[in-house]
Structure formats: structure tokens, C-alpha cells
Design a protein around this nucleic acid. Structure first.
Length: 823
RNA sequence: GCCGGGGUGGCGAAAUGGCAGACGCAGCGCACUCAAAAUGCGCCGAGCGCAAGCUCGUGUGGGUUCGAGUCCCACCCCCGGUACCA
């Protein structure tokens, strides 16, 4: 503050200052780690890279603007912070656009990336664009293919039959999203399931390690979701013979069932195979074949969610095969059914059904008139149906009277002694299907040689380039199969003719390792050098939507563990900390979409209010992890705040030397500084900005008062600008310069608060009688209970309420309240 | 269905088991203005009351506690994920 008189420096005009400072920061490379100070610790922040869908969306800003504020805050805290950005550029929308007759996916994607980069610049974020990655760039997907080869080499990639949604009319596979109520979104034909040979990664190999996530500094609910997704269960697997059918070679060994409750096996009254089970044909008798075939046809048109639902009746959701299997525990025959609620992908694809102890089995048995035998005693007065609790075993011969844990142990041991079964840990987690019958993805680097079979493409021949000219219109084959130039190849082993794999890799593969690429984005010899990996990995702070809680975040963890086993990266986990930001909705509270007409374009908001206001508003409108509707009317409040900041800084009151009078402002400034620091640290941007608003309002009151203590005023203004800098970088830079701070505010250290100045002289506390507030008193924050009690009883209201009654207890919480409990 | 999250004024929200509604939007009143905008000041959960004040109030129903938005039990509604949207 250099002037005593009130000069009018003009009103806050964000348009003038924002572009000027952005250009200067870019010119100076303020965001490039290489230019930062030596000797500072590195800190690596990553925000999930966007899919280049077209225009930048408010949702992108909601994810990225607070991320930038956080990175800036940690720079002020003395770290070299790397904050990169890239594009998850392979995927379905680009291909759909091409099929609908739009541009080629390559051109469409590149144009979108260019546009979104330009739009992102307006945020004033410190993304290091020199490290940008583009997953559809051959220099990137070459390494995505390299990863596939490494997993193949380590026996973590294999082929097996799997089903895919198939539209018989469009002649193409469909993503789940393209299936609406069992029909193709384009032509509305009924979608069926089609079996084809596809590539998988053995994620289940790492199930146990992925399950162990307790130690991660992640939101608890995300860790719980992952553990439930992996779904470890301990149980037993055993063989059931098919009565009278042992002469059929397919049934000579019977079939295997998996159960977590072998102790309830005496209550088995039927057995169920999944409709996709390999032995369905064998167990089906001629008399039942028509019904069974019709049932399987129906199941092929049902989604998995519908199949697993326990809602409604199970009638017509199963069919009798005509065969009987033998319960090995008591030698009794039980009918074998098919039912849609048994999935081929879990366990052995077959179960023993115990309706007394399983609700879905109960419902099924009721619908099909199958007997129900309880083998666990429900508690007294039990009125429910299936009972899954821990009661003593009944109707179970040698298990009777035993409780769950011991009964399971005995039953399992018995299976092992008999040589018909064994204990088995089972996961709900399935291996990762990575084959896609699509064009816009990285080709799977595999060759099929007539003589040598399945041959991996040699690493030095990568990338297997995606050809530009192919047929996108569905032909019933993968688009790459329509390009002879692509398909026809030479076997690297025998130099004979070979055909290339024509499926492409799931785009989740691109996003499973991109954060390993930013530290060393132009490396032509490895996805990342050991040196760059040591410098930056693992990621210190990862942010992105919680919709990725199970799939992307698990795939990335899987990849990182494989990378670790290969000696590529330090540590065991890719993301030390993870923050799940919420989703921003349209003003009507629904997800923004063009068809609903509720999309708010960031560009318009910036034009109207400036980037700082828009950034701060997104941080202010609610807790970051919650998201919520974007209210176009609310943003003016943040604009008014920044205008007030501008006004108090550029047009201060008369400054005099009056330290006594300045103490109140100093307490306000230091308390705010403490709170804002804690809030930034915890990503509570909404309350951080609210606190800065309060400090600004206090400054404004002093300004209207016409006079303030010079020392307190200058300190408060300086602190306010520094606190605002991470959230509102442009105005902070401008005001920092105008108040003589120099360049750049973004290279300043975060100020330290004085703890002695965060405590006010007196506080107002509530006085309650029997828990109801009857008065308020002004006391020192650390006042003794006796002093507080005296002050409270001096209050007329309180005295009236207490007099004539017996005080049985007094509860005193210093600085908060005093409660008289009276009779 | 299953897994996870959420429900507080007209609206977005705040609140280590301790004064519910900070901060902001909208609204109402006032000042400035020829007027409007902008800005500043005041009011702003509901009901009752001239007032002092009283009663009720955090999705619903119950419980624990001197004290519950917060902890426990049961339920209702909304959102995300559910393995080929990313």
C-alpha cells in the first residue's frame, strides 16, 4: 500500500487482465517442472484425462479447476508439482460418428483434441502441455501394444470363448450402452448373445493383492466398493454324479458345484446349471429338450442385471433338464435344473440349491414346487423364509448341533476325505476381457501363423499401425478384417504366411498406464525410464470421478503391480492418494446432455464472468466430492466477491499507525489463513472460499469506516491475495503486482499464521437449561467453569429458569456452552 | 436385485456429539440516482405473540445421551457403478 489517499483504480475487469497474465505464464513456462527450483521435493498430481468428445464441458472444469488450485497450493508449500494433461483418445464415440457418416475417427478425434486444448487454456491452469499424451497417437499406442506383449510373455494374457452382445440386423457387436431394453439402439432389433474367441488378462491372478487396499489413502467407500467387487469368498467345490447317466462319456465325471455353505448340503433339494454350462446338452433328456432349448433362447435375450435380480417371481426363469444328480452327503437324487440366476462366469457355473438357507433358491423352489428342508435352526419366532444366519445344524445327521464355522469345517473335511471335493477360495472378480471388435483402438499385436500358431508381434516391429482406410459400416467382422493390407502378414518365426489379429484393445488399457507415461512422455525405448519413474511415481494425488471406482481404478492397480513385477516402477500401488470428485449437473439437477438442452458451456461463462470467477464458483458451489446442479444465477455472488477484493486492495482506507485497534483485523486474518490452509489441504474448497469472503467483508467494513491500522491492513491484504492465488490465479497476480509484490505471486511461499493471533479475546457461548438455550454470555475462550457459571447466573433469563430448582449437574464445554441440568 | 453415496430454509450449502442454517443466490425494505443499472446498508426456517419471549423444525419411525443433522436399529426416496460409454 503506497498511497494514503483513496484513488480510484477502476473497477474489476477480468477480461483485461486474464489473457495478459496467461500469455506471460506460458511464455515463462511457470508450469514446467524443469524450470522449478532444485532441491525441492517432487509431487505428482494427476487428474483423469478426458475423452475428447467435442467441446469442453462444465464437468471437465469441475474436475480440473480445483485440481489446478491444489497443485498451485502445493507449489506455494515448497514442492515441485507436476500436473500433466492428456487425452483418452480411443473409444466408441469417434467410431459411432464415423458410422453415422461423419468424419473419420482420426480426423474427428484430432480436431476435438485441438479444440479442447484451446478451451482448456482459458482456465489458466498450470498443465504442462509439453508432456501431453494422446492415447491414439502411434507413439503412445505402440507402448499400449508393448504392454500387451509383456502380459502375454508373463502368461497373463490368454484366449477363450466369451459372449458379446450381437445385433443380427446391424451385423455387429454392441456395447452394453448400445443395448436399450434388450434392443439395438440403432435399429431396435432384438439383441442376442454371441460366443466368440476373445483375449483376456488374468486379473484374478492378482485378486488377493488387489483386495489388500486398507492401507491406501483413498476414500473409504471406494476401497469398500473395490473389495466387494473382488468379492473373496471361502467355500468348497465338489462333484455330483448324474444318476443313471455315467455311461455318457461327457457325464462320466459328473459336474462340479461351488458353495460357501457345504454345511447345509443335507438340505439340498435340487441342483442348478447355468444355461451356458458346457454339460447342458449332455444332461438334457430328449423329453425336455424342446423346453430347454426355448429357455436358453430366452436367456440369451436377457441382461445380467435382470438375471441376477431377486425381485419378482422366478417363475419361467428356469427349466428342468430331465436328469437327477446325487447328493453325495446323503445319496439322495435331486432334480437338475437350468436357471438364469446361475452365471457361467462365477464358480463352476453350477450350484447345489438349498432353499432353506438361500433366498433365491427358496423363491425358485416355491415357484417350481420343489421341497424345502431346513438344515440350520432359525431363531425362536423366525417368520422369514430362507435363514442364512448362524444357528445350529438340524436334519444333517453327523453335523446336527454344530454351528456354522465348525459345521463348514467338518463338511469340507469330509468332502476331502471322500476324494470328491476340496476347499476353494473363489472371487467374484473376473478376468478382464480386452478384445473389441472395433476399429478405433490399438490393434492387438498378435499374428496367427498356419504353421506356428499364435505368435506375438516382435517388439521392434511395434507399433502395429492402425490403417486409415477401412470399412466402418458393419459387415459382421471386425473393421480391420476388411483391410487385406492389414490382415496379410509374414510370420516372424517361420516367414510363412500369417494373418493379423483384427480385434483391437479395450480403451481401458490405454488409461491403465498413461500416468506412467507423463514422467517420460517422449521416450522411444521404453514406456518410462527407470530414472523418470523413480523421480515421480507413484502418483501422489489422483483425482477423478467415483464412477471409476471399480473398473478403471482396479485395472490401473493391476497394471502397476505387473509393472512392479517387471522392475519398471517403484512401490506397489499407482495412486498414493485418490480423491473422487462429484458430478456437476445441469441447472435442472439432471445430468447435462445436448438432448435435454440443459448444457452450460464453459466458454460462455468465462466470457461473461472471467476464468477466475468461474473457477472459484465451481469450487464454492458445494463440497468437491459431492457435485450437484450448476446454478447459472449463483455465480454472480463469486464475481461480487472478487470485485470487493479488487476494491479493498486498490482503494484502501486511510492508513494510520494504531496497532491496538488493528488487533481484531489481525486475528481475523490469521484465523482465516489457518482455516484456508487446512481446507485446501483437505480439498474443502467451498469453505475455503467462504472464509476468504468473510475476511474480505471484514476489510470492506474497515474501508467504509474510513481508517485502519497500517500494519494490520497491509498484512491482511497480503495474506488475502496469497490465499486466493491457488483458486483465482489471474486476479491474484494482478493485485500482487499492483501492491508491489513483484512477479510472480505463484512463486511465493504460503504465509505462516501466528497461533497467538488465531484466538480472540472473548467468545460468546450459549447457556442452556436442560439442553435448551436460554441465554448467551461473553467470556474468555479459556474461562474457568466457575467464572462461566457466575456470568451465566447473572443473566436474567437463565436465573429465572434455574431459580427454585435443583441443579443436578452442570456440563461445561469451554468456548462452546454451559448446560445446567435441573430437576 | 447387488455394491457404494446422498436427503438440512424458496435455492446451493455450513456445522471435532455442544448455540442448526456460516458463506452465497433469490426475495423484501432502505440509501445513492431524474430514472435504471451498479454499489452499499438492513431483514430473511415455520407458527404464536404488541413485546419480552415461547413452541416446532435437518427424508420417515423408533432408540442411546445432560445434549443428536452428527451415534445405533428399521424403512422411504434420489444419484453413481454393475465388467463392451469413458
Amino acid at each position: 500500500m503506497t498511497t494514503e489517499s483513496r484513488t480510484d483504480s477502476g473497477r474489476y475487469q477480468p477480461g483485461d487482465i486474464e489473457s495478459r497474465w496467461r500469455e506471460r505464464w506460458e511464455r515463462d513456462g511457470l508450469n514446467r517442472v524443469a524450470d522449478h527450483v532444485e532441491g525441492r521435493p517432487n509431487r505428482y498430481h494427476v487428474t483423469m484425462f478426458p475423452y475428447p468428445s467435442g467441446d469442453l464441458h462444465v464437468g471437465h472444469w469441475f474436475a480440473m479447476a480445483p485440481s489446478d488450485a491444489l497443485a498451485r497450493y502445493f507449489r506455494m508449500r515448497g514442492y515441485n508439482v507436476l500436473l500433466p494433461m492428456g487425452f483418452d483418445a480411443f473409444g466408441l464415440p469417434a467410431e459411432n460418428a464415423a458410422i453415422k457418416g461423419g468424419a473419420h475417427p482420426r480426423d474427428w478425434t484430432d480436431a476435438n483434441i485441438q479444440r479442447m486444448r484451446d478451451q482448456l487454456r482459458a482456465m489458466g491452469a498450470t498443465f504442462d502441455w509439453e508432456r501431453q499424451v494422446n492415447a491414439s497417437d502411434p507413439d503412445y499406442y505402440r507402448w499400449t501394444q508393448w504392454w500387451f506383449l509383456q502380459l502375454f510373455k508373463r502368461n497373463l494374457a490368454y484366449r477363450k470363448d466369451a459372449t458379446a452382445n450381437w445385433c443380427p440386423s446391424c451385423n455387429t457387436t454392441l456395447a452394453n450402452e448400445q443395448v436399450i431394453d434388450g434392443r439395438c439402439e440403432r435399429c431396435e432389433s432384438e439383441v442376442t448373445q454371441r460366443q466368440m474367441e476373445q483375449w483376456f488378462f488374468r486379473t484374478t491372478e492378482y485378486a488377493e493383492e488387489l483386495l489388500a487396499n486398507e492401507h491406501l489413502d483413498w476414500p473409504e467407500h471406494v476401497k469398500v466398493m473395490q473389495r466387494n467387487w473382488i468379492g473373496r469368498s471361502e467355500g468348497a467345490e465338489f462333484t455330483m454324479r448324474v444318476q443313471g447317466r455315467e455311461d455318457d462319456p461327457r457325464l462320466a465325471d459328473g459336474f462340479r458345484v461351488y458353495t460357501t455353505r457345504p454345511d447345509t448340503a443335507f438340505g439340498m433339494t435340487f441342483a442348478v446349471l447355468s444355461p451356458e454350462h458346457a454339460l447342458v446338452d449332455a444332461v438334457t433328456t430328449d423329453a425336455q429338450r424342446t423346453d430347454v432349448t426355448a429357455f436358453i433362447e430366452r436367456v440369451r435375450r436377457t441382461t445380467e442385471i435382470e438375471r441376477l435380480s431377486t425381485e419378482g417371481s422366478l417363475e419361467k426363469r428356469g427349466v428342468f433338464t430331465g436328469s437327477y444328480a446325487v447328493n453325495p452327503f446323503n445319496g439322495e437324487p435331486v432334480p437338475v435344473f437350468l436357471a438364469d440366476y446361475v452365471l457361467a462366469s462365477y464358480g463352476t457355473g453350477a450350484i447345489m440349491a438349498v432353499p432353506g438357507q438361500d433366498q433365491r433358491d427358496w423363491d425358485f423352489a416355491t415357484a417350481y414346487g420343489i421341497p424345502i428342508v431346513r438344515t440350520v435352526q432359525p431363531p425362536e419366532g423366525w417368520e422369514g423364509e430362507a435363514y442364512t444366519g448362524d444357528g445350529p445344524a438340524i436334519n444333517s445327521r453327523w453335523l446336527d448341533g454344530l454351528h456354522k464355522a465348525e459345521a463348514i469345517e467338518r463338511a469340507t473335511s469330509w468332502l476331502e476325505e471322500q476324494g470328491i471335493g476340496a476347499r476353494k477360495v473363489q472371487y467374484r472378480l473376473r478376468d478382464w476381457l480386452i478384445s473389441r471388435q472395433r476399429y478405433w483402438g490399438a490393434p492387438i499385436p498378435i499374428l496367427y501363423c498356419e504353421r506356428c500358431g499364435t505368435v506375438p508381434v516382435p517388439e521392434d516391429e511395434l507399433p502395429v499401425a492402425l490403417p486409415y482406410d477401412v470399412e466402418f459400416q458393419p459387415t459382421g467382422r471386425s473393421p480391420l478384417a476388411t483391410s487385406d493390407a492389414f490382415v496379410e502378414a509374414v510370420c516372424p518365426d517361420c516367414e510363412g504366411p500369417a494373418r493379423r489379429e483384427t480385434d483391437t484393445l479395450d480403451t481401458f488399457m490405454c488409461s491403465s498406464w498413461y500416468f506412467m507415461r507423463y514422467p517420460d512422455p517422449r521416450n522411444a525405448d521404453a514406456p518410462v525410464s527407470r530414472e523418470a519413474a523413480e523421480a515421480w511415481l507413484p502418483v501422489d494425488q489422483y483425482t477423478g470421478g467415483s464412477e471409476h471406482a471399480t473398473m478403471h481404478l482396479l485395472y490401473a492397480r493391476f497394471f502397476y503391480k505387473v509393472a512392479r513385477d517387471m522392475g519398471l516402477v517403484p512401490g506397489d500401488e499407482p495412486f498414493v492418494r485418490y480423491f473422487a470428485q462429484g458430478q456437476i449437473l445441469g441447472p435442472d439437477g439432471r445430468r447435462m446432455s445436448k438432448s435435454r438442452g440443459n448444457v452450460v458451456a464453459p466458454d460462455g461463462q468465462i466470457e461473461k464472468w472471467g476464468a477466475d470467477t468461474f473457477r472459484a464458483y465451481l469450487m464454492f458451489l458445494g463440497p468437491w466430492d459431492q457435485g450437484g446442479p450448476y446454478d447459472v444465477d449463483g455465480i454472480v455472488g463469486v464475481y461480487r466477491w472478487l470485485s470487493r477484493v479488487w476494491a479493498v486492495v486498490t482503494d484502501p482506507p486511510s492508513l494510520v499507525d494504531a496497532p491496538e485497534a488493528g488487533r481484531a483485523l489481525r486475528v481475523e486474518a490469521h484465523s482465516t489463513l489457518q482455516k484456508v490452509g487446512e481446507d485446501y489441504e483437505a480439498k474443502r474448497f467451498n469453505t475455503a472460499i467462504a472464509a476468504m469472503m468473510e475476511l474480505t467483508n471484514a476489510l470492506q467494513r474497515l474501508r467504509d469506516h474510513g481508517e485502519a491500522d497500517r500494519g494490520a491492513w497491509d498484512e491482511a491484504v497480503r495474506m488475502l491475495i496469497l490465499m486466493a492465488a491457488p483458486a483465482c490465479p489471474h486476479i491474484a497476480e494482478e493485485l500482487w503486482e499492483r501492491t508491489g509484490g513483484g512477479y510472480s505471486v505463484h512463486q511465493q511461499a504460503w504465509p505462516e499464521f501466528d497461533a497467538a493471533l488465531t484466538v480472540p479475546d472473548t467468545v460468546e457461548i450459549a447457556v442452556q437449561v436442560n439442553g435448551k438455550v436460554r441465554g448467551r454470555i461473553e467470556v474468555a475462550p479459556d474461562a474457568e467453569e466457575a467464572a462461566a457459571r457466575d456470568a451465566a447466573l447473572a443473566d436474567e433469563q437463565v436465573a429465572t429458569q434455574v431459580s427454585g430448582r435443583q441443579v443436578v449437574r452442570v456440563v461445561y464445554v469451554p468456548g462452546r456452552l454451559l448446560n445446567f441440568v435441573v430437576k
